[in-house]
Design a protein around this nucleic acid. Structure first.
Lengths: 205, 205
DNA sequence: TATTGACTGATACGGTTGTATGAAATAGAT
DNA sequence: ATCTATTTCATACAACCGTATCAGTCAATA
């Protein structure tokens, strides 16, 4: 049982701390202490705090892009595939519980997005709006800018993941039980499907 | 044309800076410089950085609670009133564009919520879940935990407001035009109503 | 006009920050 | 076993942090 190499331990510790306390709220000394490394380790392996931060962002987001594009290429109608994308988001954000905090902090900031993030968001956005446009072409989804529907779809998994810690504190842990979380996901998917599709019996032009 | 009193100028400058850069990322020196006040002003008028931060949170959130409860007491069915609550959120977050950043940063953090925030969220949550339960009792809304529907409803205005700066950077300002924003709100309301209500022709037990 | 209270302003202090530096330790190849 | 390249470690440094201190300003009151 040998410990993972220092750069990996640094990335892990940094991801957790950046997510919890933000970039400015986290010091290099905190990171290296949690990673069991020396103060100089961050500068040596990554070249500085900012570079480590970008590395953390890139590593956390890359598999999400992979997962989303894979879900978008699955079977079924465009609406089915949008549901798969939504579920991919839920799964990914559940496995990397610190990601939404990282994302939302970055989005809320004034300055431009870090390159890895900007590229990932562009890819995902393109995938989703493409699916929406397909669904509209088939008459499954009401007309309107595809970006609107894309935003509505992602709002739920990201918002849920974002408020998860606060929610757990509010409900004294009840919302952390697997059964409750599974039910929430099913609700969100059903809610989004109803929102996405035409009401069942309305005639379409 | 006389300038507003120092505490007001401090609150305003602090709100903007805290929203943009977070609590740890903002220094007292930045705040007083933007407010045109002296370094000692924050300590003198508020007793310290943390106290100023709490004052900013309370001031930004209190009118939201007021607006939401007012919308919840309006006319129409429970679903109509939920729509009014959603529109109240959109309006409030549009007037206080820095609020979602403040909220989400706080929610994403590990430590307990500041008292003014915790109380406000409790009040709003109670109002919304009450309306959802009413709607379910009248057979307008499908069964399920009211909290689920409450989360789905708030996900859109908060998420939209949160990603707004990033989105504007992405679309080169197109999403900042009033027409685009109005269309997005109408879309979100329609989306949520479809998600909230039973499909139109389904028989209810 | 003298006095009191509220406020502003400049400076100081201990502590923490990110980074730089160079010596010590380690590992791999010859 | 010796050399070399890589990584660890302890320390140093300038810059900045939040707060405290205290003299100065100003307005209102008596």
């Amino acid at each position: 049982m040998t410990a993972p190499p220092t750069p990996d331990r640094l990335r892990l510790a940094a991801r957790r701390l950046f997510a919890e306390q933000g970039y400015a709220g986290t010091s290099i000394r905190q990171i290296v202490r949690r990673a069991g490394a020396n103060l100089g380790a961050v500068t040596y392996h990554f070249g500085g705090k900012q570079r480590l931060y970008h590395a953390v962002l890139a590593e956390a987001i890359a598999p999400l892009v992979e997962r989303v594009t894979q879900a978008a290429e699955g079977p079924g109608s465009p609406v089915d595939r949008l549901e798969a994308v939504m579920r991919a988001y839920f799964t990914h954000l559940d496995e990397r519980r610190d990601l939404p905090a990282l994302i939302s902090r970055e989005m809320a900031q004034g300055r431009p997005l870090p390159p890895p993030m900007r590229e990932a968001i562009g890819r995902i956005s393109q995938t989703i709006t493409g699916l929406v446009a397909d669904g509209q072409a088939e008459g499954l989804i009401p007309p309107g800018p595809p970006l609107h529907f894309g935003l509505s779809l992602l709002a739920q998994p990201i918002y849920f993941a974002l408020v998860r810690p606060g929610l757990a504190r509010f409900t004294e842990g009840a919302t952390e039980q697997p059964a409750w979380r599974a039910a929430l996901i099913e609700h969100a998917v059903a809610f989004a499907r109803r929102g996405l599709e035409f009401p069942v019996t309305v005639e379409q032009p």
